[in-house]
Amino acid sequence: MRWQMQEAKQRFSEVLRAAEAGEPQIVTKHGTEVAVVIDIAEYRRLRGEQVGLMEYLRVDPLGDVDLDAEIDRRREQPRDIDLAG
């Protein structure tokens, strides 16, 4: 989402909620991008700081992975295993 600086100031709570939800918020001044508001866990990850597991998972680390991608799987049946023996 893009915000003009004046609007971002007026609706700062909304800007923060969206950033916390993992949606970077870009702030512009006279049409030029001047800042981005991101979740603190994402900021720490980008800086290379260690992040706790729960913070890491909140950032959605698989957000750029296409979960609908076709996966090639073997079509043959699994081998028989004698468990009695």
Score class of each variant (00 low, 15 high):
R79I: 11
P78R: 06
P78Q: 07
A21F: 06
V59L: 07
A8N: 00
Q4N: 12
A35L: 10
L16T: 05
A8G: 03
E76Y: 13
Y43I: 02
E33F: 00
R17I: 07
V15F: 02
L62C: 04
K29G: 01
A21I: 07
L16Y: 04
R75F: 08
E7Y: 01
R45H: 01
E33V: 08
I71E: 14
D64L: 06
A84W: 08
R75I: 09
D68W: 07
R2F: 06
D72P: 04
K9Y: 03
V51L: 14
E20Q: 13
G22K: 02
V36L: 00
R11K: 14
E33W: 04
E42Y: 00
V59A: 15
R74M: 10
I81M: 06
E70R: 14
M5V: 08
Q25L: 02
G85T: 09
A19M: 07
G22T: 05
E14N: 06
R2Q: 12
M1A: 03
L46R: 15
A41Y: 01
E76P: 04
Q25G: 03
A18I: 00
V65I: 15
D39T: 01
E7M: 07
L16Q: 09
V15K: 00
D80T: 11
E20R: 14
G31V: 06
D64K: 12
V27H: 00
L67Y: 07
E42K: 03
I38V: 15
V59S: 15
F12I: 10
Q4A: 08
R79Q: 12
Q4M: 05
E14A: 09
V65S: 01
R44G: 01
D68I: 04
Y56W: 15
A69S: 13
R45Y: 00
L53Y: 13
G48A: 08
T28M: 14
G63K: 01
E76T: 15
D72N: 11
E49Q: 14
D39S: 06
G85F: 06
Y56G: 11
V36N: 01
L16I: 13
L83T: 12
E14D: 14
L57E: 13
I81N: 03
Q25F: 03
F12Y: 13
A41V: 05
P78Y: 02
I71P: 05
E20T: 11
Y43D: 00
E42F: 01
L83E: 10
Q4W: 04
R73H: 11
G52C: 09
A69E: 15
R79C: 06
E7Q: 15
G48R: 09
D68S: 14
A69G: 08
